[in-house]
Simulated assay, not measured.
Amino acid sequence: MAVTAAGAFRRTPGERADQRLAWNRADQPFFAAGACHILAWVCRDTYPDRPIGLAGLRFAGQRQVFHVYATWADWAFDHAGWNPEADLLAANQEFERRPLDRIAITGDLATFCRAQHHRTPHQYFGDPLARARDYVNRHPPPWA
């Protein structure tokens, strides 16, 4: 799957206001904008025998993370599957046309959600954890 900037899939005002409408998007848009953090944590948890990290993108100088993804070696996993992290960073930088910061994310999902004002799994219309597990399993990792 080709690398595409997360911002290309931003939710509409209607999708932001209506969880059912947001939930009914196809998987790639759903995990690009609105549930990327869920996908990243599930990816890390799917491979406990690998040193999977978590990273986030934010606009330079800002505190709020707008995209979260999993990392392994020089690879990144997000809504576009596994791709070289450099390609993911370049695609997002080109799309946003403003400086971005990449940050390492530590801690658990609940703490991240509280700090970044992201939805926790129980705040979605359906079960995003099961949906994310299915999505991760459809994208073979680079070491496979």
Rank of each mutant, 00 (worst) to 15 (best):
D101L: 15
Y69F: 15
Y135S: 06
R133I: 05
F66N: 06
A115W: 05
V136R: 15
G7M: 04
T46K: 04
P29V: 01
F31H: 01
R50F: 05
A6D: 08
A130N: 12
A104V: 14
A70W: 00
A76H: 06
E96F: 11
A91K: 03
T46G: 04
A60V: 05
G34D: 04
A32M: 04
T12A: 13
T120Q: 15
I105S: 05
L57I: 05
A73E: 15
Q93C: 02
D18A: 05
H139F: 13
P51H: 10
P140M: 10
D74K: 07
D45T: 08
L39K: 02
A86E: 13
M1P: 04
P13E: 05
P128E: 14
Q116V: 02
F77M: 15
D134G: 07
A8T: 11
N92Y: 03
C113K: 07
R58G: 00
H118D: 01
W82Q: 13
H117I: 09
A110D: 13
G14C: 00
P84I: 12
A33D: 03
F9T: 01
T106H: 10
R119W: 15
A144L: 15
Q28M: 08
A8L: 03
R114F: 10
A144F: 11
Y69K: 04
T111Q: 14
N137M: 12
M1C: 02
D78L: 01
D87A: 14
D101C: 07
P84M: 15
D27S: 11
W23M: 10
R11F: 02
R20H: 03
V42F: 09
